[in-house]
Computed example of a mutant assay.
Amino acid sequence: MRFSFSLILLLICGVTPAQAAENTYTAENTLAKYSDDYPFISIASINAPASVLAHKDIAYVSDGERRLHLDLYRPAETSGSPTPGVILVHGGGWQAGYRTHLTPIAIKLAEAGIAAATISYRLAPEALYPAAIYDTKAALRWMRANAGQYHINPEQLAVAGSSAGGQIASLTGVTNGLEEFDPQAATSKVSSDAQLIINIDGLSDFTSEKARKYEDAPRDKPSSAVLWLGGHYAQQTERWHEASPIYYVNQATPPILFLASGRTRFYVGRDEMIRRLNQHGIPSKVVTFSNTPHSFWLFDPWMQPAASAIAAFIKEQFAAKI
C-alpha cells in the first residue's frame, strides 16, 4: 500500500520508477565530481581498527518481510562506564545514499568512546515523508532497548545526520514524544527520544523563501524535496510545514550541533532556528567547514575534524567521563 501511494505521487510529479530508484549517490561518484576543484581529497576509510568492535547488518525494525538494518561501532574496551550512543542517518536527497557513507565518522566516534550506529532507512519511492522519521525513531528505540548488551547508556542517546539525513535527524529529535511521528510508541514501553541532535548541512525550514527557491522552483525534473514530500509547496503546504524542524522548537528541544559546509543553500533555516533555541535557553553550536563542498564529511581531510567536533559536543553535553 505504501509503495502504491508513493508510486502514484511520483507519477503525478512526472518521474518514472526507474528514474526515482537510481541510487548513484556514492562516495566514488561524488569524488569524481569534486576532484577538479579539490584534487587533494580522498575517500575516508571504512576500515575499523582493533580498538573498535563492529556489529554489522543488525535488523533493527521489520514490517512484515521488510527489514531495515544498521551497523554498530563501539569501543572494544568496556571496563568503564556505559558509553553515549548516536544514531547516524545518511544523506542522498531522501531517495539515495547508503549507510556506509557515515561509517568513517562512526568509527572515529567509537575510537573517541561513543557507540555509533549507521542505519539504512526507507527511501523514496518506496516510502515518502514521514517514513524516514518513523525508521529513525525505531533505530533510537532499538539502541535504547539493547543498550545493556552493547555497553551503552540508554539515557545518553543522540541522533545525527548529513544533508537529507541532517533534516531527518533534526525532525526526529525535535519531535520527541509526538506519537504521530512514531507508530511504535503506542505498543512499546521503550522511548525513542533523543537527548542531542547533530545536523550536518541539513535543512531546518522547507517553507522559507530561500529553501523554496531551490526546492520548489519549476523545472523539468522535480526536486528531491518535491518527490519526498509528495508534491510542490502549493500542493502539499501542510507537509512542507510539518517536515520543517524549525516549527517544533520549544523548552524541551534537545541541544543541537550544526556542522556546515561552504554551501549555504543546504542549511537554510539554521540561523532562525538558533534564534528560537536561544529564546528557550537551549544550547546550540555551529562549526563551519569553509571552502568545502556539500558532501565534505565523506572525505579526508575533513572527515576527522567533523567527527571530532561531534564527539566533543556529545561529551560536553553529556558531561561523560570517557
Rank of each mutant, 00 (worst) to 15 (best):
R141I: 12
F266Q: 08
E28Q: 11
A117I: 13
M143H: 01
Y34D: 01
R239P: 01
G93V: 04
F289P: 05
L72G: 00
G93N: 06
Y60C: 00
A138W: 03
S42H: 05
R270D: 09
M143P: 04
D205T: 13
E238T: 15
R239F: 11
W302L: 05
A32D: 03
A27E: 06
I168H: 05
P75S: 11
S295Q: 05
F5P: 00
A112T: 04
P17V: 07
A18C: 01
F296T: 07
A306D: 00
Q317F: 00
T253N: 13
S208H: 10
I58F: 01
D216N: 15
S120L: 13
H101N: 14
T136F: 05
A59N: 08
D271F: 13
T253F: 12
I322H: 06
N278L: 10
L31C: 01
S295G: 09
A112C: 09
A20V: 02
I310S: 06
T26S: 14
I105F: 04
S163W: 07
M303S: 11
C13R: 08
L157T: 08
R99G: 02
E180R: 14
A138K: 09
L259A: 10
R263I: 14
F206I: 10
I200F: 10
S35A: 12
A260F: 02
G231Q: 14
L298E: 03
R144F: 09
Q279V: 13
P82T: 06
T16P: 07
E111L: 13
V15R: 03
P84S: 08
P254Q: 15
E155P: 01
G173Q: 02
A106H: 11
P305Y: 01
A147W: 02
D205K: 14
